[in-house]
Nucleic acid binder design. Structure first.
Length: 669
DNA sequence: TAAACCCCTG
DNA sequence: CAGGGGTTTA
């Protein structure tokens, strides 16, 4: 901090005033600046003047930098902040407040006032420590705190309410409250005789003023933080690292909640990045941006509601100081963000790299529709041939792996919409630090897929995804530090809010699981369906191919398939009917179709080549009827009519039966 | 007139 | 099974 160094004489009157004042109205943030610097350093002028000047200086610095604390500023504050820079330190201090040795104490010990000051410090710190105990860090035994602590808390609340009343006043009045006093030139070292009551009253006023200022700063900060967070989200590749490092330095015992919030923020942003990245691989630019915005908004809502909810749930027992104490760490976090942005936004580098290697996966999917004129559907190969593996069906339990349709940045050679979205969903559900393997809540379709396609820990995914080294370092460090995921924070509302993200991912899943091309599996399924229906309507086709994104081309292809099936079917019928006539069969009742008849074997060989499907009896009946129809028509010489088969078609088309529901789930494939 | 169907060819 | 031309139909 850029304070002019005072000389080494202590102000006696201020010392007496401090004893009588109620320090519990002070903010921990201020406490760091005020109490933790050697009080002896304030020699000339009223100590209030010094403190207030420093506070105003802080405020100005914050305003000028738009609440951005530079790295050096953070470092400075960390040096000043001996009372609460780390949980370890603060714990030690809490255990033995009197043992606290401030920075520079080595030179202060010899001071005549040292003992007196230390005793005072011990009292003040004791009070502060009581105030600082957050609900989160409070132990069961803490409820037995002495009455003075409770009184302090009550007084703190009253002071908070008082400040809130004053806050409604115009802002310039606040400056006028403490402004003249802190520049009072008459406040010199020989003013021992000044009126203590007056001094204490002024001190109180100034403290209130400072408290108001800080509260406004905090509100402003939260406002700015929540507003600017979305645009930072996709560029904060190293934020988690920064969070961890700043955490370890600044977290104090009363900052349990802050630590959680930091992790929530980091974790949400972390997941956001993954979501954004996966979406980038998956979707078009506009959809990607939309989804990113949605997710970003959700994440910020999530974090925001964490703040609000925690504040409201603990607000009754939380003193204003405890509420305020959230600001320093957060300010530091934002400061770090801004520092990185000003340093040239290194986060954009990974994005650029990712964009450079981004494939045109979507273009692949849309090629059949987007790059071909509407009436050239027939020019395309109607079956997407996928070598050399079993084709993918999102709900197909026998699927080995999806086909390697393209190389994407993840280098999932078997990467598909299905897997990306599932990975995404998994990340949102369980965080990037969890493994995909054998999770009890794994999506069923995921579980049934082959292990080699899904049994990937996050780090493996990160490796495949060519994430930047900083990204990897972040995850590695976060894992090493045992960073908690949102789910592990024991914050139900966090889970609820992240459920919104999962809902979005669910929608994403539904969309990306739809195939935009027919596969051999679909062909096989269609052939089996032919045993039930020879003339399926387009609605039936859509219902029984739910994993196919229907367009005109796909519909035509499926219709053509069934047309070909019918063609073969009728050809066989005509052939066997004519054979029967040649064989001299005179009675139509002598023409039957059974499972061991030659006709059926021909049909079964065509539609059920693997013979792993039990052909329904109804198909036998329909086949027999069809054979009879052909026999009758040929016998009566109706085949001389060019359209003699149409009558037969009319009969047969009425013999369709419903396709079993199981076909909708592709369970036969 | 687009869609469905038929018929034929490869 | 795909493709294409011809025909029918709504």
């Amino acid at each position: 901090m850029n304070l002019s160094l005072p000389d080494q004489t202590m102000h006696n009157s201020s010392e007496g005033c401090l004893e009588d004042d109620k320090p519990d109205v002070m903010l921990p943030c201020f406490r760091r600046n005020m109490y933790d610097e050697p009080l002896a350093s304030y020699s000339s002028g009223s100590i209030i003047s010094q403190l207030l000047r420093k506070t105003i200086h802080n405020k100005r610095a914050l305003d000028e930098s738009h609440f951005y604390l530079s790295g050096s500023a953070a470092a400075d504050s960390s040096q000043e902040d001996q009372c609460s820079i780390s949980s370890k330190d603060s714990t030690v201090e809490a255990a033995s407040p009197g043992a606290h040795v401030p920075i520079g104490a080595g030179t202060e010990v010899e001071h005549p006032m040292a003992d007196h000051l230390q005793a005072k410090r011990a009292r003040v710190e004791n009070i502060i420590r009581v105030m600082a105990g957050s609900p989160n860090s409070r132990q069961p035994g803490d409820s037995e705190r002495c009455d003075t602590d409770a009184r302090d808390t009550r007084e703190a609340r009253e002071a908070y309410r008082e400040n809130k009343r004053k806050q409604r006043l115009p802002q310039h009045q606040e400056h006028s409250v403490g402004g003249p006093a802190n520049r009072r030139p008459g406040s010199s070292s020989n003013s021992d005789n000044c009126n203590k009551d007056e001094e204490c009253h002024k001190l109180k006023e100034q403290l209130h003023s400072m408290q108001r200022l800080l509260r406004q700063l905090q509100e402003k900060f939260l406002q700015v933080y929540n507003q600017e967070d979305p645009e930072n989200n996709d560029r904060d590749d190293t934020e988690g690292v920064e969070h961890e490092s700043t955490e370890s330095r600044y977290v104090s015992t009363e900052d349990d909640f802050e630590r959680k919030n930091s992790r929530v923020t980091a974790e949400c942003k972390d997941r956001m990045k993954v979501v954004g990245y996966l979406v980038q691989q998956r979707e078009s630019r506009s959809l990607q941006d939309t989804l990113k915005q949605e997710l970003s908004r959700a994440v910020n809502d999530c974090v925001d509601r964490v703040f609000k909810k925690e504040a409201s749930s603990t607000g009754q027992d939380m003193s204003p100081q405890q509420r305020m104490c959230s600001s320093p760490e957060l300010q530091i976090g934002v400061g770090a963000d801004r520092k990185r942005q000003q340093a040239g936004s290194p986060q954009e580098q990974p994005q650029a790299e990712e964009a450079a290697v981004k494939p045109c996966s979507l273009e692949y999917y849309e090629s059949s529709e987007a790059h071909s004129p509407p009436d050239q559907t027939e020019a395309l190969s109607l079956v997407v041939r996928k070598p050399p593996v079993t084709p993918l069906s999102s709900v197909n339990p026998t699927v080995k792996r999806p086909y390697p349709m393209h190389q994407n940045p993840f280098q999932f050679s078997y990467s598909t919409p299905l897997h990306d979205s599932q990975i995404l969903e998994h990340l949102l559900k369980y965080g990037p630090h969890s493994s995909f393997g054998g999770h009890p809540c794994m999506a069923p379709s995921m579980d049934r897929n082959s292990p080699d396609s899904v049994d990937l820990p996050w780090d493996a995914i990160a490796m495949r995804s060519k994430v930047t080294s900083s990204h990897l370092a972040h995850h590695a460090r976060a894992s090493a530090l045992g960073a908690v995921t949102v789910d592990n924070l024991c914050l139900p509302h966090v889970k609820i809010e992240c459920g919104e993200l999962q809902s979005m991912v669910f929608c994403l899943n539904v969309n990306v699981n739809i195939q935009e091309g027919l596969t051999p599996s679909h062909l096989k399924k269609a052939k089996l369906m032919f045993f039930y229906t020879r003339y399926p309507s387009s609605n039936v086709l859509k219902n029984f191919f739910p994993d196919v994104k229907f367009n005109r081309c796909i519909t035509s292809q499926l219709i053509k398939w069934f047309s070909n099936f019918r063609e073969f079917y009728y050809i066989q019928m005509e052939k066997f009917a004519r054979q029967a006539i040649v064989d001299g069969i005179s009675d139509i009742k002598d023409m039957t179709v059974s499972r061991d008849s030659e006709l059926f074997r021909a049909l079964n060989m065509h539609y059920n080549k693997a013979n792993d499907f039990h052909v329904p009896d109804r198909f036998m009946e329909v086949s027999e009827i069809t054979l009879h129809e052909f026999y009758s028509a040929i016998s009566s010489a109706k085949d001389s009519d060019p359209s003699w088969k149409k009558a037969i078609y009319k009969v047969i088309c009425k013999l369709d039966s419903d396709v079993p529901e199981e076909f909708k789930t592709s369970s036969y494939l």
